[in-house]
Design a protein around this nucleic acid. Structure first.
Lengths: 334, 334
DNA sequence: TTGTACGCGTTATCAA
DNA sequence: TTGATAACGCGTACAA
């Protein structure tokens, strides 16, 4: 009763393996009754076609990869949910890869996918915009790739992003309207596409509001909480900004810790706004004003693009831009 | 330059496929220089052995499944990190499945894994303790399974849990010491093993402290935020507890929302403690007292048990119990 | 140390 | 409608 394969099942039923196989494939002609009989017996014996044999034979895995920088983050977990939803409908499985924001892991994951493990990849980038040769290999192998949120500009594939420039512009004006004049912009990777857009929106909003732009107020942070804590402590003590604009959720969190510890009152002394999908933003002390991205929709859209490529066997190059929403809360109240 | 297989590579090198194959397998005898030559050329041509062919041939996938109820949760994302860490060391890949706390999805995932897709499964259960026949099938197929945190008592496999009873007992005493006399216990699934343990710790602590136990104060909640919000609103208005003990993080979050909206001051009017791995518990308003589980270690331990089973080809039945830690914060200050 | 040949479990093609 | 057979790409006896 151990491992049962198609041959044993066929013998048990006095049928050929081809007939049995047909019972499991939707299309081929097969007598409805024999099909019933086969499937019934298969259930009894707990038979399922071996995935690896099928994939080998059909030259596809019915599996897609999702590559994200981190998991413990509402934005990504919602996006993943959206992707999985679509994949499930299409009968595909999903493989999740977490890079922990390490570029090297991203490279290694992608390299390990070219062996046919997956039929396509949906990714939010982790790295610096450096050497993307590992991604070009994918194209050679006709492995479709779709980016969402964090993209590499120099890679010509389908991308799903949000209107980062506009959001950033509006968020900056929101701070200014709340009375801020000395706004620090906290960013992790200025050079990554998403960082660039967000910085530019900030700079242009300052200009539009006739507030002089000060290069020193663009604060380069890291992915390490400890380092960020130190960087931001110094910023608060020496630069004394009256507004903080976090390009990434974790920088808002770090700012909260610093302000709590230094006894800097939010929003009285400093106002904070952040790109964030944090569900419990309303419960923070004080509640955090966020620019929230439509994470679920982004995931769904990205998956749809990937499947269009998979189904047409043709590359897809759509650039989809969805809209984020600013949700004002106490951290920026005047 | 499209898809390249072992034959083409072999021809290119004037070698046989077996020799090429050997270059990629650790063990077999092969001349060091030819191996070098093969690997070098493989890199050039971007060749990688086809996963499905290998798996079919070797009858294993070098992949394990991780099944969790949810992703947007620090506990699970840390546990996953632990599991992946171990898996990576062993050269295994991980497949993450999210059930959204739906028992049916769990069943369907597991059923879909028996086809050789994975070599083993690490799971935190989603369901009610009902029909576990789908799990018994795994045993028949010699597919090892390890539970962590949320387990089914009636399934005899390796399990990694925390000292839930003790933690619950101590947490209840913590509330009592802070002055609570009317403590509501919020739970999602009383019948699931983990719920039972936590409830019992609560009940026994009341007894030990000579506080009468009131059945009505055990509040059965759901996985739906909206429903929980309504349930808890009613609880706060009618039962007027002075302490809330949340068996699960999301119930603490829901409680916060309710108290904020009803203007019930925490901790003055009601004190709250919760099982939770929330990283930003200190930033909540007020900061949340938590019972925090060693999520990463649990993941690592679970993975180690699974690999022991995989490596020895024998079932493993260890019951590992790790310790949680109570971290007092403002939500329970006297 | 290398090569030959078979089989892993499926499915598609073709013939019956 | 069903059955026989070849092939998917690889790894390993076995022979050389």
């Amino acid at each position: 009763m151990d491992k049962i394969d198609i041959k044993q099942l066929a013998k048990d039923l006095n049928l050929s393996t081809s007939t049995v196989s047909r019972a499991f494939r939707g299309n081929s002609d097969i007598n409805a009754k024999t099909k019933e009989r086969i499937l019934a017996r298969a259930r009894e014996l707990n038979y399922q076609p071996n995935l690896y044999a099928s994939s080998l034979r059909e030259r596809k895995s019915k599996t897609i990869a999702i590559v994200v920088p981190e998991l413990a983050n509402n934005f990504f977990s919602q996006a993943i949910r959206g992707i999985e939803q679509v994949a499930r409908e299409k009968g595909y499985h999903t493989l999740i890869y977490v890079t922990d924001d390490e570029y090297q892991k991203e490279v290694s994951f992608i390299d390990n996918m070219s062996n046919g493990r997956v039929d396509g990849i949906i990714m939010s980038a982790s790295g610096e915009s450096k050497d993307h040769n590992y991604l070009n290999k994918l194209k050679k192998k006709h492995m479709p790739l779709v980016f969402f949120d964090r993209v590499y500009d120099d890679i010509d594939v389908a991308k799903v992003t949000t209107n980062d420039y506009d959001s950033s512009f509006n968020a900056t004006r929101h701070l200014i309207a709340a009375g801020c004049r000395r706004i620090a912009f906290l960013v992790i990777n200025k050079s990554l596409s998403i960082g660039k857009m967000r910085v530019q929106g900030y700079i242009d909003a300052l200009k539009a509001e006739h507030i002089p732009f000060n290069e020193d107020l663009i604060i380069d942070c890291s992915n390490d909480h400890r380092k960020n804590y130190n960087i931001l402590s110094k910023v608060m003590k020496t630069l004394k900004p009256d507004g903080l604009f976090a390009a990434v959720e974790r920088l808002a969190i770090a700012s909260y810790y610093v302000c709590h510890d230094l006894g800097i009152a939010i929003p009285r002394k400093v106002k904070i706004i952040s790109f964030s999908s944090l569900e419990i933003a309303p419960l923070l002390n004080p509640s955090l004003t966020t620019i929230t991205q439509p994470a679920l929709e982004m995931g769904i859209k990205a998956a749809q693009l990937l499947f269009r490529s998979l189904e047409t066997s043709a590359p897809v190059h759509d650039q989809v831009v969805l809209k984020s929403k600013i949700i004002p809360r106490k951290s920026t109240s005047a």
